[in-house]
Amino acid sequence: MMEVKYAVHPDDYKHYTTEILRKHFLVEKIFVKNEANLIYSHVDRIIFGGIMPVNKNIELNNMLNELKSEYFLERREMGVINIGADGIVTIDGTDYYLKSKDGLYIGMGAKDIQFKSIDQERPAKFYVSSTPAHTSYPTVKIEISKANPVELGSLQTSNERTIYQYVHPAVCKSCQLLMGMTILKEGSVWNTMPCHTHDRRMEVYFYFDMDDDTRVFHFMGEPQETRHIVVANEQAVISPSWSIHAGVGTKNYAFIWSMAGENQDFEDMDLIDVRNLK
């Protein structure tokens, strides 16, 4: 299944009710048993979502109507991070075993891609992001120990966290996709503050590792026209390039971030002074 979400102009979003805001920017259900549940966003043409094989293999090439392509990665690249139990991604006959929090970059041109779990009682949960690509780079398995860790924040500002860069120039080559995972330490609840925009790239946040009664208040919008979306466990928010993207939780949590757009410079961002937020 692939849902299509269209781009939104910042002048329009100012008039949205909570219900409409959630309809256009929030994805409430990422993982569905024995399905590839994907979202095609017209914001930089990113595709993201969850693949959760339980008692059967799941392959991508049965969802090609929206792409009008011969196979899924004919003109695309993909990043994968497993947040569930052990699983296998098979790419053109080669198996890649992914434990929890292991990742994978799949280059353009890979034709036969299948996902399966080792134990159906403890299924894998593959979170994926895919962007248009212009050339083919090698497929790379990225264990969390091989991701590039960046320590940021402090307990005093309630945002002490580790950013693990998976699909990133410091780890592997990709065309435009950037993808990684941020884990907040106990006692920290802000995923970033001061917040920022990056007009050359959009971003998707996928929140997970949350208790049933934990919520994240995800802030978005232009700096002088902010709104918030209340997000539960294993839900995702689309952040257009014109929007800030910051969240504060009722408890610490983790999230996977994916970016698509003009460049791959992780530091390319426009910081917003907290005093200028409205």
Rank of each mutant, 00 (worst) to 15 (best):
T94C: 09
V54G: 02
M52D: 01
G87S: 11
I113L: 03
V89G: 06
M52V: 02
Q114C: 07
F31S: 07
N82C: 12
R76K: 13
I46V: 15
V32P: 01
H134M: 05
S145A: 14
D119C: 14
G50L: 10
S41E: 03
Y97A: 07
K29D: 13
E35Y: 09
P132I: 13
N61P: 06
K29H: 12
N37L: 10
L60G: 07
I113K: 08
Y71G: 03
P123G: 05
V128R: 00
F72D: 03
E143N: 15
I30E: 06
A133P: 06
N37S: 14
Y137M: 09
K111P: 01
S41K: 11
L104A: 04
I83M: 13
I113P: 04
S117D: 05
I30T: 15
I51N: 03
D86C: 04
E66V: 09
I118P: 00
I91R: 04
K146W: 02
E143L: 08
Y97T: 08
I83L: 09
M63L: 12
A85C: 05
S145I: 11
E77K: 14
I39D: 02
A36I: 10
K116G: 01
P138E: 03
K101M: 06
S100T: 12
Y137D: 01
K116M: 12
G103T: 00
V54C: 05
V140W: 00
E28G: 06
N57F: 02
N55Y: 08
N65T: 13
S136A: 15
V32Y: 08
E28I: 01
N57K: 15
R45P: 00
D92T: 09
L38I: 12
L73G: 10
S130R: 12
I39C: 06
I88H: 07
I91H: 03
I51G: 07
V43M: 08
F31T: 07
E66A: 13
M108N: 07
Y137W: 13
N34C: 14
A133W: 11
K101I: 00
V128Q: 00
F31E: 05
G84R: 02
I83P: 08
P138T: 05
I91G: 03
I144F: 04
K101G: 00
I142P: 04
V89E: 00
M52A: 14
G109I: 09
D95Q: 15
K101R: 14
L38H: 08
I81S: 08
K125Q: 13
K125S: 05
T131V: 12
P138S: 10
L60N: 07
N62V: 06
K99M: 03
K125A: 01
Y137V: 03
K33E: 12
S41R: 11
L67Y: 07
M108L: 15
I51T: 02
K56N: 09
M63Y: 13
E121W: 09
H134L: 07
M78S: 04
L38A: 10
N34W: 13
L38V: 06
R45Y: 12
I46D: 01
N82D: 08
L60T: 10
G49Y: 11
E35S: 11
Y127C: 05
E143S: 12
R45L: 03
G79D: 02
S69K: 14
P53Y: 04
D112S: 13
I118E: 11
G107C: 06
G103V: 00
K68T: 01
